[in-house]
Each structure stands twice: as structure tokens, then as C-alpha cells.
Nucleic acid binder design. Structure first.
Lengths: 245, 245
DNA sequence: ACCTGAACACCGTTCAAGT
DNA sequence: ACCTGAACACCGTTCAAGT
């Protein structure tokens, strides 16, 4: 058996995504996926050559939803954005000025997907995806950066910089990497519970102590994401200012 | 048995790191680690409560090497950096101006660790680490950002932005996410092998086509990393310019 | 053409027992 | 105190066989 069957692939991917959502990615097994669609584990191997292949297909499905539905996001820094515009039509030059809106929509789409598939999303940083859907997403980003005036020689690099940050942010958020360094956990050492061990000993984390009031505050992750996007606009500006070659 | 033994923990972590390096993280098992140090799998459970705990300890070991040895990196954009300085001594205010050098050293240290432990490094984006070593690394970054003049209210956010990018970059690099979109793979669609399917059909990836000459060039990842660090300096500048609260 | 059953070589972890 | 042996409930995947 060389050629794979395709008809039930979407059904299998959907089953795998729901198993991962319910029991976690680590608990995902060919056996559980097979159970879910009422079939023997070995039947899956007619559709995917291995579990690795199935994981790739799952990652590809997430990418395909990046640009799918644009839920109401806060377009505060993008007042010119017109939701009636269909980004799929070919005439790109008509709204060159909308590159901020297109990048913003992509960024929010990615974060939304991460929230919808928290268990599976981290796969995207580890699995290179070159499906047509993935290339299409990158193409939209390329075009937006070209429209912004980034020199062509720097466009792929800036796209990698931005997508790396965005994937990393969403992954950190859903996996709790950010939260771990926040609030009581991190402030604790500097804030102290009054029972400081040895007040004469040099503080091992002086900057944490200095930032204790800030670190004790709860973090609004939506606001942090928006602030990050605004600051990253400076990266694009820096790339635009670079010598063209 | 409530309390864990600690004496052989470093030996076990080292064995686990070498098993992961040789056979990959997916093939890492308690049984193989136990074999490596000539012991029964169950003996490990006296030192780590679970495989998850062992993975956390492995991640912690990588973090502890971020600042360890500063291999010769290109200090091109940091001519004032003096390698004779020992960042460990307490007198920090004497070289406030060296914040660029300290951030750069941290960034390069992280990427070096990624290259030394490619199989294990991706754990760092998925496992929140709050070991003393990890907090120390964050503290160095906090201090550098404070010295740079970033308003305290924005320092933790900017630290998260930068560390997210750096972890993501190194992960993408060692896992091949970057390379997958490069050279022949990505340029192929736009470049074409002359045997274009239908020249009348609308190009599904117009920006790729426009960037084909750039995409066909091999990428110097060291140079890309340096360029990214330079452009990210603009993020720090943007944060400095923000209203303090 | 599509699926099943049995089998192989593995897992993490528990528990009681050994020295 | 530290480690072992046997056992339990799982894995991914191969291969030959069923309908």
C-alpha cells in the first residue's frame, strides 16, 4: 500500500483534535483516535503513514484557520480598516495603505486559534509547515510588508521575526510560561513575606526587588498583546529605514 | 517516600540529556536513562517524582547555562563591551551604559545553548521555569532594561517580548521551521520549473513570486540573528518613549 | 478496497520485597 | 537507605488474514 486514502482524513484530524483537547496532547494516541471514529487503530494507517503525519495534518488544520473568520478584535490602532473588504480578491494594490490592518488581522487570527486549540498550538513552532494554507498565510504577510515599504531583501527576515514572536507569544500564553513569572510567584522573592532570611545578605535578584510593585500587579494579556504589536511596528519602521541591499 | 534524594540528580539529568541528544526527545524514556547509569528504572523515582519532573530538571539545566560561558560572539554593535568584566560581581551601577552588551550576551548565550542541546531546547517554550537560575537570568534582563531607561511599568512586558522572540528564534532554527520556508522549497512555487501549469491562472502566491530572487538566496542565520537583534533595539527605543505609566 | 486480530517491542508507574 | 522484580495498563507499528 503506497497511496494513502484521503476521504476520511478530515474526519480523523477532527477526531484527533478533539481527543487532544479533552485529554491533552501527551495522551493523544492512535488507539484513542481510532476508538473515537469507531474503527481499529490499524485502519488509520490507510490515511496517515504514521502518528507524526497525523500530527502534521493537525498542525496544518490550525494554520488553515488563521485567516478563516475574523472575530471582532479591537482595531483601535487601525481606524482605516474596513471589514467589508475581502482579502481573498486579487486586486491588492487598491488598499496598500491597509497593510497594518492585514498584519493585525493575521496576528489576532493566530492568537485566536491558539486559544481555541491550546493543547495543539505548540506544535506549530516545532513542525515546519509548508502546506498551501501555510504558504498562503506567509504570502499575505509578505505582501503587507512589501506594501509597508520594507525593502524586498528584508521582507522574509521580518516575516520570520514577526511570526516567530507571534507563535512564541501564543504558545507561552497557552502553556502558562508567562503566568509563571507573574504575580505572587515572581514578586514573592523580592516582596518578601516579612520573614526575610538575612537582611544583611546581598539581594540575589535586585531588579525584581526594584520592580516588585509592578510585578505584583495582575497582567492584562490582551492589553499586553496590543502593546507588543504597537512596539513591533517600530521593528518594521527600522527595517524600512535600512539600506535596500 | 515523600522526600526526594538529591545526590544523584545531576548524574541522572546528564544521562537524560545525553540520551535525548543521541536518540531524540521522543525516544527519551525512564528505562533508557536508567540503563545509562546502570540502574533499574524504578530507582529514578527516588530522585524525580515523575518523568515530567525529570524533563523540568533538564530544562532548568539548559537555563543555568545561558549565562555560563560567554563564547566569542561578534560584538560588532557593542564596541564598548569589555569581556574582562565579570557580570557576577555586585557593583552593577558602574557600567549602566553596558546594557546593550549584557542583553546581547544573554541573547547569544541562549542561542548557543539551543545549538548545544537542539533536541531539548524546545522544552523551554512549553515548560514554565521558575528555578533560581531562571529568575537570575530574568533579573539580568530586567536590570539591563531599567538601565536602558525603559519605564519600570513596561520592563516585564518588554522582557517577555524579547525572551519570547529569542526562545522562538532558537527553537525555530534548531527544529527546521525557518529552513522549511527557504530556498528551493519556498521559492519553487514562484520561481517555477518553467513547466508552469497554467500561465493564465491567477498566481495564488503573488508576493512569493515578487520575492523569488530573494527567496532563492541561501540564508546566513548568524547574520539574520544579528539583524533581528539590531531591529529589536527599536522596540526598546519605542518602550523608552512610552508614557511612564 | 477497506478493515481487523494477533503479535512485537516497547512505555510510565505501582507495589511489595530484597539487602 | 537504597534499590530490584514482577505486574498493570498502556503505546506505535508490522504482518497476514478477513470480507
Amino acid at each position: 500500500m503506497r497511496k494513502l486514502k484521503t476521504d476520511r482524513q478530515p474526519e480523523i484530524v477532527a477526531a484527533a483534535l478533539s481527543v487532544a483537547a479533552e485529554r491533552g496532547l501527551d495522551a493523544l494516541s492512535m488507539r484513542l483516535v481510532a476508538d473515537r471514529i469507531g474503527v481499529t487503530p490499524m485502519a488509520l494507517y490507510g490515511y496517515f503513514r504514521s502518528k507524526e503525519d497525523l500530527l502534521d495534518a493537525m498542525a496544518g488544520h490550525l494554520v488553515s484557520e488563521f485567516a478563516a473568520h475574523n472575530p471582532a478584535h479591537n482595531p483601535a490602532h487601525d481606524p482605516a480598516h474596513d471589514p467589508a473588504h475581502d482579502p481573498a480578491h486579487g486586486d491588492g494594490s487598491a488598499y496598500d495603505g491597509d497593510w497594518r490592518g492585514r498584519l493585525s488581522a493575521l496576528a489576532h487570527g493566530m492568537r485566536d486559534v491558539a486559544k481555541r486549540y491550546p493543547a495543539v498550538f505548540p506544535l506549530l513552532l516545532e513542525r515546519p509547515s509548508v502546506t498551501p494554507d501555510a504558504v498562503r498565510v506567509v504570502d499575505v504577510a509578505f505582501q503587507a510588508l512589501l506594501d509597508a515599504g520594507v525593502p524586498p531583501a528584508h521582507v522574509p527576515r521580518i516575516e520570520r521575526l514577526l511570526s516567530t514572536f507571534l507563535l512564541g507569544f501564543a504558545t507561552s500564553e497557552v502553556r502558562g510560561r508567562f503566568a509563571a513569572g507573574t504575580g505572587k510567584t515572581r514578586a514573592h522573592r523580592a516582596y518578601g513575606d516579612e520573614s526575610e532570611d538575612d537582611p544583611a545578605a546581598p539581594d540575589p535578584f535586585p531588579a525584581h526587588r526594584r520592580l516588585a510593585p509592578v510585578l505584583a500587579r495582575p497582567v492584562d494579556w490582551d492589553a499586553e498583546f496590543e502593546a507588543d504589536l504597537e512596539d513591533l511596528a517600530a521593528v518594521i519602521a527600522a527595517a524600512i529605514a535600512r539600506p535596500a541591499e
